[in-house]
């Protein structure tokens, strides 16, 4: 073959070599094809650990149990026992160290998430005791009369 065919070919081979060498330095060592194969598993393995290291914020009711045993046992006899403490009290994160105090949601809007009656026969919503928020003491906070830890008739 003639020289003029070889020369551009060498240039191309050279470029490919440069790209491959650069790749060695740029691409992390753990980047490659992992368990789910070439089509779905082509990634940087250490990213899985990055995701696992994200901070847990909602700790669950067992976390509250030891210090707040009185409230824990009080609510456990009511229909509200199925609701997590943190749904109203906010995520515990590292409480009591950080944050020392949780922001409690005492708003009417929180209660009517479940207790605004909706007539949907194929869901559990229609079986929850509910009110029409436009007619039942509009503008007044529910906790003025109802105790969410007792979940019963007004006190």
């Amino acid at each position: 073959m003639k020289n003029h065919v070889f020369r551009p070919l060498l240039v191309v081979i050279g470029l490919v070599a440069i790209v491959l060498i650069a790749r060695l330095f740029i691409v992390p060592k753990d980047f490659g094809v992992w368990e789910r194969g070439y089509m779905y598993g082509w990634h940087r393995k250490s990213n899985e650990e990055d995701w696992k290291a994200v901070k847990v914020k909602f700790q669950g009711r067992e976390y509250c149990k030891d210090c707040h045993s009185e409230q824990y046992s009080q609510i456990s006899t009511t229909p509200h026992a199925i609701i997590q403490c943190e749904n109203c009290h906010g995520p515990a994160i590292d409480h009591p160290a950080d944050p020392p105090k949780l922001t409690i949601d005492r708003s009417r809007n929180l209660c009517i998430r479940c207790h605004s009656y909706l007539p949907y026969p194929t869901t559990i919503r229609s079986k929850i005791k509910g009110i029409n928020p436009d007619e039942h003491n509009p503008g007044i906070e529910c906790v003025m009369c109802h105790n969410p830890h007792k979940a019963s008739k007004p006190k």
Binding site: Y40, W42, H43
Partner: peptide, 27 residues
């Protein structure tokens, strides 16, 4: 068969061994 993973041009989204599809924010 996550279609979102198939189209990623840089390997930033992928499926872990347990089937969960993750996004590499750095990538």
């Amino acid at each position: 068969n996550p279609s979102c993973v198939q189209v990623c041009p840089v390997g930033a989204t992928y499926q872990a061994a347990d089937g969960v599809v993750l996004v590499d924010r750095k990538w």
